[in-house]
Simulated scan of single mutants.
Amino acid sequence: MDGILVINKPCGMTSFDVIARLRKKYKQKKFGHTGTLDPNASGVLVVLCGRATKALQFLENSDKTYIAQMKLGQSTTTDDIWGETEQEKPVVPITDLQAVLDTFVGKQSQLVPKTSAKKIAGKKLYEYQRAGKEVPEVYADIEIYSAKVLDESEMKFEISCSSGTYIRSICRDIALKTGNVGMMTALQRIEAGGFTIEQAEELDAPEHTLYPLESAFEPMEHVEYEPFADILNGRKIECDAKQDRIAVMHEGKIAAVYERDHDNVFRSKRGLW
């Protein structure tokens, strides 16, 4: 079983739980996912299986789209409803949530949550917190491509962003920008790696649609190259590709990922046969 599954991860399960269930269902060990969803989040989890797991490193940093909901008046240790309360304060009404969201669109440096897995001095931030130590401030470079309000009264919005963006941090920062404290109350990922929530199938479905690995590499420039023996042996190749990273194809299947070495010379990054 080689290819891609698109699972609608339910709330209350870790991404690893999903992988464990799939391994048991299909009696196969080689599974991996392209981006973790928190246990309390739901939505698109792109799962690679079999030979496709070799491509994991090229698909982990894909852009994503989420639907989030937030609440004002309370902040927590995790920046979401599942953490311990840190502060409560009277709500300052937000009269135009869309205008506030618009200020977040673009490239920025985001303060990651204290409970994230980001590492400082070899230790994850949540490990500092659990040990009762002061949590260092860590910032990540991200980009918000678009943000739109879905329900003003419920503070529900859709956001498209680069990989590594923390939506709960955005909820926290929306609150702070408007003189409030706040937290995320719900999160659903509706798009990841080019796959949408409409394609996502329930984990307990009798069978799952198996997408070919090539479907995840559609945005990457495809190059047919001969002799194919050069690709199998990981040799450098010459081609007139425009992108610095290319998918080398053979008989309609992706065989390897190459990246520019210099000029029109490309070196093998990973064989995928």
Rank of each mutant, 00 (worst) to 15 (best):
D2A: 11
N8S: 12
D244K: 06
A256M: 04
K30D: 03
G252Y: 01
E198R: 13
G3M: 08
I237C: 08
M70R: 03
A140E: 15
E154I: 02
C239E: 03
K27N: 10
K24P: 03
R21D: 02
V149E: 12
Q57N: 13
W82A: 00
S163N: 13
N264L: 07
L213H: 09
W82L: 00
P219F: 02
E221M: 07
L213C: 08
L210A: 04
G83M: 13
K114F: 11
Y225D: 10
E221P: 08
V257A: 01
K123F: 07
V223L: 03
E143M: 05
I19A: 06
R51K: 14
I81E: 14
G12K: 05
S153F: 05
P136K: 06
L22A: 04
S169Q: 13
E238D: 10
E134Q: 13
M184C: 03
A192G: 11
E60L: 15
Q28L: 06
E143I: 10
T95K: 15
K9V: 06
P39D: 05
A200I: 05
Q57V: 01
A200Y: 10
Q28H: 11
L272A: 10
Q129C: 13
V149T: 15
Q28Y: 02
I159W: 01
A175L: 14
R235E: 11
V46R: 05
A229H: 10
Y139M: 11
I170G: 10
D173S: 03
H262Q: 13
D230V: 02
H222L: 01
A192W: 02
L37I: 04
L101P: 00
V47D: 02
E202D: 15
E259G: 02
Y66P: 09
L272Q: 12
Y145P: 08
V138F: 08
D96F: 15
R168W: 11
S169Y: 11
I246L: 07
L59D: 04
Y258D: 09
K123L: 08
D263Y: 02
R270F: 00
G193P: 00
F31W: 10
I197L: 15
I142Y: 02
S160R: 05
K119M: 15
W273K: 13
M1Q: 03
A229R: 07
E134V: 15
E218K: 14
S153K: 12
P136I: 14
M220C: 09
Y128K: 00
R130F: 11
V265A: 08
V47M: 04
V6P: 09
K107Y: 04
P39M: 10
E221N: 06
G193A: 06
D151W: 04
E60R: 12
Q98N: 09
F31L: 10
N40P: 02
L187M: 04
T178P: 10
V248G: 12
I81L: 15
L210P: 03
G43M: 12
K27I: 01
S116N: 07
N233T: 14
Y126S: 02
K148W: 03
E86A: 06
I19G: 04
F195A: 10
D240K: 11
Y26V: 02
L187R: 04
A55D: 05
D63L: 12
F217R: 15
S42D: 11
A256H: 05
S62R: 14
E238V: 03
C239F: 00
R168A: 11
C239V: 09
S268H: 09
I246Q: 12
P10K: 00
Q199A: 06
P93R: 00
E127K: 03
L203I: 01
M1S: 01
T53D: 02
E154Q: 15
D2N: 14
I120V: 15
